[in-house]
Design a protein around this nucleic acid. Structure first.
Length: 736
DNA sequence: CGGTTATCGATTTTT
DNA sequence: TCGATAACCG
């Protein structure tokens, strides 16, 4: 089946540098590959799999490859397919959650789950939590739904069930009780949240010797991408899957660990080394992406972090352009600058799609977006609400879920009165009381109540007839049918606003159903897979897919547009031109992160990620004045900019611009002009928003002032030195 | 029941 | 500022 092994494997390894070659052809032992940004990480990972297969050291069935995102999994799959003729689908290649899902479908009996179990996405999870709090009569002020949701997920991701938890205080005790109740509801309704997919799989492996041994025998090679992002539970799961014999080949970069806030544990990297007998990591330090000056900046910034495994990127590329830095008078002018620059680069022939505007938080995108819109420059924003999160899509899917499992209370509540069919809060409350009293699902309660309540009975009939179609009609037929029969389409047609978008999305959903191929989903198609024989199989597969896939694989591609996204969202991407915006103390590094232990270092890693996205040209900008949350905020330049060696920076009219704006404030064309003017009042010769220098504290910005006649009391933000209150009578302040 | 007003709060996010 | 969510009234 394979071409002659030695020859073709030489071809496979062609063009790898010595570090990469060492990693790819590492003996069948565990390894940690420290792969810097742009060092060919994905290539190493995929080539190693291809090499293992081609040299027959491993068969497809004995390899597991894990990623975090569907995108990364898909990319590995395609790249692997291009390298070597192999049935990649037979391999366990996918996301942590995708593989756990597959595992639970295969072993749903051991997992004590119904064959038709459904996956809750975070929105579903939140509504379940809210429902639970209401039923327990716990006010939102006592326990916020989101905090309970976070609590439950955090516990699950540490591998802890409610009965294992100890309460240090009464408040936590209530949370633990809610956690226990939450799991009970999930079991009753046959639903599983994201963290549960992992935890349940882990527990089965732990408790079931036969299964554990089966998988430990099966997988000889476990390859993990973005290992620095794994959480405690994922690491424990990997350990169980690996057992004593499998070689874990983990690729990651501790300098790009930016997801601690959602449970990622960089400590897993050193833990892996200790527990899997790895003496030293393999370092990939040759960077193939960025020009010298950009790399120098990245290295210089990240060197300020203490807790590192140690790694320094190098490149053969020329120094290239210097990093262009602009201190703009306002967010408005910062945006304008970016647009002018992007337009001129575009005229020079750079595609817009090769330019990215990065910001720390989503709220910062608005100014830039508006400016782009006015200038007529096409742009694409990442990170809006996803296709499968839209309400009309969730409504439609809820009907499908009821078709598969009517006991899914979440789904029932979502659509029992959507479109409005006269079943109001009162009726629903009655159903909920009945369900709680008799320990039955809302659906069963609705069936019982049918005789008395005509409207409820009509809904029950609607769902019944839907259920009868399962196995009779095809998935798209069922979907299109229920959209019509339920009145959902008609409802949106009669709505005044944003109806067309929603109708288009529903059409899109039907299209997705037509094109959906269950065999390509997360299910492993095996002759003995009971799920695959179920008449509801296409529906189940489609729904699982919708929950696990964000669904913006091909959305809006084609047009040449500037890419707007948060720094987080940019991880893993690269662009010829990057505009790194909003580089102000308090925004980046974010004020909130400074309060957390290790927060500053994580922000710095984020900065490192941002810088290393750029191939050829990097712009860094800050706004001395920014409109945020309806208020004008004054800021000074981020300490991270000051960590960049001056010799790789090129200053663009920074100080001139600063003076110009405050000495001669020009009326701005938008409504905010009035507020801009207010900042021009002087206090002891200084103005709010002005930059000043203090002999001891350095440079700062005046954020507030109280006039005291002769002198003034100024509140000044000195960045690293903190916020000080100084009197102009005593403090030696000079304007900058 | 369903639309309208008031209130709150606000990094980062994948599955 | 703006958006989501909750109480409120017709």
């Amino acid at each position: 089946m394979f071409p002659d092994a030695p020859e073709s494997s030489a071809q496979l390894l062609q063009g790898l540098n010595p570090e990469q070659l060492a990693a790819v052809t590492w003996p069948p032992q565990s390894a940690l590959v420290l792969a810097g940004a742009g060092s060919g990480k994905t290539r190493v990972l995929t080539t190693r799999i291809a090499w293992l297969l081609q040299t027959r050291q491993a068969g497809v069935h004995s390899i597991m490859a894990v990623t975090f995102t569907n995108k990364a999994a898909k990319e590995m799959q395609t790249r692997l397919g291009a390298m070597i003729p192999v049935n990649v689908r037979a391999m366990w290649l996918g996301t942590f959650h995708g593989l756990c899902h597959r595992f639970l479908r295969l072993h749903h009996r051991e997992a004590e789950l119904p064959a038709s179990f459904q996956i809750l996405d975070s929105g579903d999870q939140l509504s379940l939590v809210k429902r639970l709090l209401k039923s327990q009569n716990i006010a939102e002020e006592i326990i916020a739904p989101r905090s309970l949701q976070g609590f439950i997920n955090a516990q699950k991701e540490s591998g802890l069930r409610a009965d294992k938890l100890e309460a240090p205080d009464p408040h936590t005790r209530r949370m633990i009780e809610c956690y226990a109740e939450y799991d009970k509801i999930c079991r009753r309704e046959g639903v599983v949240d994201f963290a549960e997919l992992m935890l349940r799989s882990y527990e089965i492996l732990q408790r079931n010797d036969i299964l554990r041994q089966h998988y430990q025998n099966r997988f000889n090679h476990i390859l993990v991408d973005e290992f620095q992002d794994t959480n405690k539970l994922q690491y424990a799961w990997l350990k169980l899957m690996a057992g004593d014999s499998a070689a874990v080949f983990a690729v990651g970069d501790d300098d790009q660990s930016i997801y601690r806030f959602r449970g990622a544990n960089v400590g897993n990297m050193t833990a892996l080394m200790h527990e899997f007998g790895i003496d030293a990591p393999i370092k990939l330090e040759q960077n193939y992406r960025s020009v010298g000056n950009i790399l120098a900046a990245a290295n210089a910034v990240i060197e300020n972090n203490d807790e590192r495994l140690g790694k320094n990127l190098r490149t053969d590329a020329a120094a290239g352009d210097k990093i262009r830095y602009l201190s703009a008078p306002s967010d408005f002018e910062e945006a304008q600058f970016i647009i002018d620059e992007a337009k001129s680069l575009h005229r020079e022939g750079w595609p817009l799609s090769e330019m990215a505007v990065l910001y720390r938080s989503n709220a910062q995108s608005r100014v830039i977006e508006q400016a782009l819109f006015r200038a007529g420059v096409p742009y694409k924003i990442y990170g809006g609400l996803r296709f499968y999160e839209r309400q009309e899509i969730k409504h439609a899917l809820a009907y499908l879920r009821l078709a598969v499992n009517p006991d899914d209370d979440n789904a029932l509540l979502r659509v029992i009165n959507m479109p409005p069919r006269g079943i109001g809060a009162r009726t629903i409350e009655n159903l909920q009381t009945a369900s709680a009293e008799q320990g039955i699902s809302l659906w069963q309660a609705a069936c019982n109540a049918g005789a008395k309540a005509a409207k409820t009975a009509a809904f029950v009939r609607l769902i019944e007839s839907l259920r009868n179609q399962v196995g009779q009609l095809s998935l798209p037929e069922i979907l299109a049918g229920i959209l019509k029969d339920s009145g959902l389409i008609e409802y949106y047609q009669t709505q005044k606003s944003d109806h067309q978008d929603r109708l288009d999305n529903l059409d899109e959903l039907v299209n997705a159903a037509i094109e959906f191929n269950p065999e390509e989903s997360n299910f492993e198609i095996l002759p003995d897979n009971i799920a695959a024989a179920d008449p509801a199989f296409p529906l189940l597969a489609f729904l699982s897919n919708a929950a696990l896939e964000s669904g913006e694989n091909q959305a809006g591609q084609g047009e040449d547009a500037i890419q707007l996204m948060t720094v987080h969202a940019s991880k893993g991407l690269e662009f010829n031109v990057v505009f790194l915006t909003g580089m102000e103390e308090g925004r980046f590094p974010s004020e909130m992160s400074l309060a957390e232990r290790g927060g500053l270092e994580e922000e710095r890693r984020l900065m490192y990620v941002a810088i290393t996205r750029a191939r050829k040209r990097l712009y860094i900008s800050m706004a001395q004045q920014r409109m945020l949350h309806g208020q004008t905020q004054f800021g000074i330049v981020s300490r991270f900019v000051e960590e960049i060696p001056p010799e790789v920076l090129h200053y663009l009219s920074a100080k001139k611009a600063a003076f110009a704006s405050f000495d001669t404030p020009k009326p701005r064309s938008d409504i905010r002009a009035a507020e801009t003017y207010q900042a021009a009042k002087t206090y002891g010769g200084f103005k709010i928003g002005q930059n000043v220098r203090h002999p001891k504290f350095g440079t700062g910005v005046i954020i507030d002032a109280v006039d005291k006649g002769e002198s003034a009391r100024l509140t000044i933000n000195f960045g690293k030195e903190g916020v000080k209150e100084l009197d102009t009578k005593y403090a030696k302040l000079e304007a900058v």
